[in-house]
Design a protein around this nucleic acid. Structure first.
Lengths: 137, 137
DNA sequence: TATTGTTATACTCTATAACTATA
DNA sequence: TATAGTTATAGAGTATAACAATA
């Protein structure tokens, strides 16, 4: 499987590249970076997220979490509230605007992904998922 | 396919992430960056590559091609030779050492990719390739 | 003494613009 | 006047270390 295997690797990378590019395009109308969009999603889903937890969820340095939070707060999508159980800590909460934007972005992403995989039948999509899961262990 | 589709996208991204990480690990013994390894491959395969062509092949700015070439030259893997047909231009050529290293890296990458997809049968690998190609158009 | 979030700082990666020597 | 490669410079992105408040 020598050449075949290498080509398989390249196909996976190409598919990921395509998705990343499309994801950026999807986010463009809201002027959100991929990091910011993912952070907003975490905050909306959890309601009350410590900055340190956000950093861990996004696999970024604590310092970078501060920046992401700053950007989202500046645009009124999240707000910082004090943690009642630990006065050192800050909890991020989504604003109504933040929840609305997150909903729109999520819908756009679903539509885009649906379009990307539209060439495959439902059975083929399931098979692709199964194979990728098998590779991932 | 709403949720299923999104998950499919995540699986592709995860597979790509896994591969990128493994590729970095594979390159570690030679202390080559992914860019450098790819550039070395281009130079070895083409024998006489203009810097501008290298930049195009790697989708990087001309300035960055200079840096990659510097790094490879510093380690004796490639050398700059004047282009006989255009005295402004420089041709990159692989040294014997460069060809040897490229061969080793290539073998290591094949072995790693083989290991990564070892959980799939030959038929499953072929099917995965077919599905990914279909998505890519 | 350790931890939370922040400020200050630096490093990597890469892009743009200006420069030279050719064409 | 345009092009190839380089030098110089600057901008994102992200990391580390030091710091103040709190545990």
């Amino acid at each position: 499987m020598d050449d075949e295997g290498v080509e398989l690797g390249e196909l996976v990378m190409r598919a990921a590249r395509t998705q990343r590019r499309r994801w950026r395009d999807v986010l463009a109308p809201w002027a959100l970076s991929p990091h910011q969009a993912r952070a907003l999603r975490v905050v909306v889903l959890q309601e009350g997220v410590r900055l340190s937890d956000l950093a861990e969820a996004l696999h970024i340095a604590p310092r970078s979490a501060t920046e992401v939070a700053d950007a989202l707060q500046e645009r009124g999508l999240v707000e910082r509230t004090p943690d009642p159980t630990d006065r050192r800590a800050v909890l991020l909460r989504a604003t109504a605007d933040g929840r609305r934007v997150q909903g729109e972005v999520d819908a756009a992403r679903r539509a885009d992904t649906r379009e990307l995989f539209a060439r495959l039948s439902a059975a083929e999509r399931a098979e692709l998922a199964r194979l990728l899961r098998a590779v991932a262990e």
